[in-house]
Write a protein that binds this DNA or RNA. Structure first.
Length: 254
DNA sequence: ATGCCTCAGCTCCTGAGA
């Protein structure tokens, strides 16, 4: 069984690439972020034709998340229960006995900004909800665009980007508090290439120079960790003609 | 560099992303 996450930066633009990628990598679950479309524009039929079911939570222009699955999903939840939010950032469902949470974490723009404060509030709410979800569902995966690096290994220029957005101590403390719930960073369970990133700026030939960040993560519960056999970034789609700025991350079980 | 790309939209510029 395989699960993956991918920020596709507009599903309207990237749908052909997503379908191509699914054809080449028929994962059981694909979490998408940054759909950038309203619910009525979601291409459910295109996924159905490819043999996939979907649950989605869209929004005009910004954000928007979906879970694309081979098997049916139950107990679908959109956004963090009890956390008032205008933005569509979370979708969860149970599939093949696994509680899957797909999330598009807030960017935060800059430390000290209103958007950074929102990111911190959102992270607080997410942590408390995931704590409860873990208690109810031992087999759990939390995957998506976290917009946070774990440490300098996730940053192409750790000195130049010290304490900038995605790299601040405050954000990393929140990320570690998710780890503290009993989750593991699946990528780090296995040997990886040097400078292993999941996002590269569109500007300055950043991908060709491998000037990137690892901000897309798959966190697995203890029970799921025991079943995990591989986890890696797939950089190939970033080489497409009109790529997303993010690459997919793929988790393999069994 | 308040820059550089890319995307959406009350579209020929702006806001946002990261």
């Amino acid at each position: 069984m395989q699960l993956a996450t991918w920020n596709i930066n507009s599903l309207a633009v990237r749908l052909p690439q997503v379908l191509d990628w699914l054809a080449a990598h028929p994962v059981d679950v694909l979490a998408l972020q940054e759909l950038k479309l309203t619910d009525d524009k979601f291409p459910a039929q295109a996924f159905a034709d490819a043999g996939y079911q979907a649950q989605w939570f869209g929004q005009k222009t910004y954000n928007g998340v979906a879970l694309i699955t081979k098997a049916p999903m139950t107990d679908v939840v959109k956004n963090i229960p009890g956390f008032e939010d205008e933005q569509s950032r979370v979708i969860a469902g149970t599939v093949d006995g696994i509680r899957v949470i797909g999330a598009y974490f807030p960017n935060g723009q800059a430390p000290g900004s209103d958007k950074f404060a929102y990111k911190m509030r959102w992270l607080d709410a997410l942590r408390e909800w995931v704590r409860a979800e873990l208690a109810a569902h031992p087999q759990l995966v939390l995957m998506g665009d976290y917009n946070i690096t774990f440490d300098d290994l996730d940053v192409w220029d750790p000195v130049g980007l010290r304490e900038t957005i995605h790299c601040t101590t405050e954000e990393r403390t929140h990320l570690q508090s998710l780890i503290g719930l009993g989750l593991s960073d699946a990528v780090r369970l296995f040997p990886q290439p040097e400078k292993n990133y999941s996002w590269w700026d569109y500007r300055d030939l950043a991908f060709r120079r491998n000037r990137g960040l690892r901000i897309d993560h798959i966190l697995v519960s203890e029970a799921l960790k025991a079943r995990t056999s591989a986890c890696a970034v797939d950089k190939v789609p970033r080489k497409n003609e009109r790529p997303s700025d993010h690459a997919p991350v793929v988790l393999t079980l069994g």
